[in-house]
Design a protein around this nucleic acid. Structure first.
Lengths: 212, 212, 212, 212
DNA sequence: ACGCCCGGGACGCCCCGTTGGT
DNA sequence: ACCAACGGGGCGTCCCGGGCGT
């Protein structure tokens, strides 16, 4: 018998989620093929149907579990308990801008563009993730205000929305061009913008410098 | 006899492009149904295959012709010959942010997220449009520099990329939430950012004000 | 090129109906395989989908067109303009009872048992055919009354229902047993019953004789 | 610990048979879903496969045990030891014709139409039940002959077949129409027919009266 | 040249009946 | 007695070209 996997339901489910995420990231949800997903996971259709009610349910689970985890790992975690929240935020943006993985774009953004307005379930789930993202940024700015690193007159909600939107847009642009350059240009400008949120000391120089 | 349409090839082609644009905007390119497109255009499949080599060719033509035209109408034209280019740019952003049509999102952005990295033909064509967009913004800033409305040390290419990316991101976020609010928040922040590009007179106030 | 069929839509549709009828007759509607039907018709799925909206629509068309035609040919036509309607009715019953084709049963009865109470469209269409069948028998009996071959006090509607029901039941029984014997037994008894509907002359002998 | 059901194999088997009968009656054998059956029985698939070799074996058991019991209860038992067998037979027919439960039809007849000619095992089992049914009716008529309530020249086998076939047909017609009326019309006619089997005293009036 | 009717394959998702490991 | 996993089709329907009229 070729029983390689010694019957591990949780692992099977995890593999399906992971393969589903990959395929959805690459192809989008609707063009994603269940066949490709089960192949990628090394299981059969029956296993998928056992763990999920169908393609839609798998997609929802990918958003809730996989994308939620990624969001926390890459964006929310690093700024959650930082000593200087604004600096931490800038650091995460810089780090993201140095990634070369622009080929497939931001999975959350991709899914958002594809499925919002087509499927309410996706829209709600994706909207929830964006809310958490903005919420994390807004809380960081708020903590910055509390400790004096951010000006008091800044509307943290508006600023957080702007940061998230610019990041999403830049990620998308980089994907479109298959080139991380626009991502870095945006990171630079966004950093400049964020520095204008610090209290002025003497002479602020909130302008983008010449391209490196 | 049954000659309702007096056989007008150009008009047929135009109708197909228009119906194709609508369907692609609503559903995305791959989920778009040729059946729906020919129904929307009031013609048959044969007519489509007479004017276009296939679905892909129709998609390319939609990008080149329809999206190109829309881009020029909404974004490029209004800032092309403006007396104060920066003010004109801010005005177009403000105008776009007041639109209520967030349901389907920006057609260019949607297609970019879906097809870049999947189909090279789309990627090139969409990239070309983004280049034209950024180029238009950059030229406007440059003309601003020439006439003194924009600081000389601004890297217009970086700034143009940032503007376009933020707009695309905000449009996407608004679509995701089915709510124009984030679009307005971004327009506000972006306007603030753009004002920091003006030469300082006395005391710059480049900060976003409390939400209205 | 292997273009055997020179593009004949009507013929294609007819072939599909015929193959659909055969498969449905053999397997029942729900277990019937579209794949088997298109194979039997020598066409592809595309052709089927072109002529019918789906499996259900094909099934409806089979009932309306094929079964309707068969009903008329075998049961309604022969008694429609007969000089002696009762005799003609008895003759059709006798003829049907001599058929050896009991293997698959009566297609109308099969479909009725399977689909009534599951699909309203089938129920209405099948019910309509039964109504036409009973109606034909009832009209024949009525014409018999008019010309004196049937007693005036006979409720032709009740009698017609009984005749049709007994025939359907006998056909079913013969199919169940894969043996035409019960069909003949019923034909014999039914003939006896029908003779009791004739006006009495002297001494009626309306009893079934010993089995042949 | 988690012993909610105190592990009663016989009861589990009984529940499966009962749920299987219900689902098969409603959907037919092939469209019946094992999932629905085990849900209806409140057990799991494993339990089903513990008690039966598979779907087919369950179906066979349903025919043998459940349908056999129902046949005896409704049709065979009441006429088995009746003082006047013919009267008892007429009484059971009348009783059946007054039932309102025409929605799903006669389970035996349904299964017979569906599975005879498709599966030999079903055919034999169902044929056996029909034989027992006819046998019971024939014996009743025979006992009627012995005690003088039925004419001696009647071929009881032929008559029994006719009775059963007419009943099956009428049940089916009623189901098709979702209306018990045809069942009553047939019961009336069948009663009339059966009365012609009694020895003539003076003037027989074996004709159906005008519809009430 | 232009347009339409018809037909061809190809997957995609769903879901089902069944069997090993516990 | 059961949970987990397995493959095998079923139907839908989609994108696409040949064969004809106009």
């Amino acid at each position: 018998m070729k029983r390689s996997a010694p019957r591990d339901p949780d692992r099977t489910r995890e593999r399906l989620l992971e393969a589903g995420f990959r395929e959805i990231h690459r192809q989008g949800f609707r063009p994603a093929s269940l066949e490709a997903i089960v192949d990628g996971a090394g299981v059969t259709k029956g296993a998928l149907y056992h763990h999920f009610a169908g393609k839609q349910a798998l997609g929802y689970a990918v958003v809730d579990e996989v994308l939620g985890r990624l969001l926390h790992e890459h964006w929310l975690g690093p700024i959650e308990h930082a000593a200087d929240p604004l600096a931490a935020l800038i650091a995460t943006i810089r780090k993201a801008s140095q990634s070369e993985a622009v080929e497939l774009g931001c999975p959350l953004n991709n899914l958002a563009q594809e499925m919002s307005g087509v499927d309410e379930g996706f829209q709600h789930r994706i909207g929830e993730l964006y809310r958490r993202w903005e919420g994390g940024v807004a809380r960081a700015l708020q903590r910055g205000q509390a400790q004096g690193g951010v000006r008091r007159d800044v509307d943290v909600a508006v600023a957080a929305t702007f940061v998230v939107a610019s990041l999403a847009g830049a990620l998308g642009l980089a994907k479109t061009r298959q080139d991380p350059t626009p991502l870095r240009a945006c990171a630079e400008s966004l950093t400049g913008y964020l520095r204008t949120l610090r209290p002025e000391r003497r002479r602020p120089t909130p302008v983008p410098s010449r391209r490196a």
